[in-house]
């Protein structure tokens, strides 16, 4: 994806990236009893990342995530699952909540710490990872020609040896479906 030429948009995008992320964190941490939560916060963060990629180009946005978005999503998945598993070690059913209410914290106010929060953080990471990955893949494939196809071909084709039904169109010699022959 090309970065835009407009300097106004560029500088606004950078500032907005931080503001939207701050708002996303706010949504994440109030999500226990108020409107908000991991999913919405994740969507907000991914919107911020997409905005940044419009302003500064796709590479900048990928750099700011520091790793493959799918890895972020997987770690989030693991955190969410484990926060459900944790009570099982105490003989309680899966997903039982352990919650601790911290009163009167500075700036934040009343605040809940416990498995719901870690579950929400996991969901947040999953959503950020998946949405940004979807956007990155589609954006890359529109900027570089046939990137999706190259990914598919470089990797792993099916071991289907013959076409499902005979078709004169299909040129069987040019399809590299025998990686091990």
């Amino acid at each position: 994806m090309q970065s835009t030429d407009s300097p106004i948009f560029k500088s606004v995008a950078v500032v907005m990236f931080f503001i939207v992320n701050l708002f996303a964190l706010y949504l994440l941490f109030r999500g226990h009893n108020m409107p908000g939560g991991g999913f919405i916060a994740g969507v907000a963060t991914s919107v911020a990342v997409i905005l940044l990629s419009f302003g500064m180009g796709l590479e900048a946005a990928q750099k700011i995530l520091r790793s493959d978005p799918i890895r972020i999503a997987t770690w989030g998945f693991l955190i969410a699952t484990l926060s459900g598993v944790l009570p099982m070690f105490f003989g309680l059913p899966y997903l039982t909540t352990f919650n601790y209410k911290a009163y009167e914290l500075p700036v934040i106010g009343d605040f809940y710490i416990g498995t719901p929060l870690s579950f929400d953080i996991g969901v947040y990471m999953v959503v950020v990872g998946v949405i940004t990955k979807v956007i990155f893949v589609i954006a890359e494939s529109t900027s570089q020609e046939h990137r999706l196809v190259r990914i598919a071909e470089s990797g792993y084709c099916a071991r289907s040896e013959e076409p499902i039904e005979e078709d004169p169109l299909r040129k069987s010699e040019e399809v590299p479906i025998h990686p091990d022959k």
């Binding site: 099916a158 076409p163 399809v175």
Partner: peptide, 10 residues
């Protein structure tokens, strides 16, 4: 996942 371009439309 492992379908080639001929099969993917199915």
């Amino acid at each position: 996942l492992e379908a080639d371009d001929w099969d993917v439309r199915q």
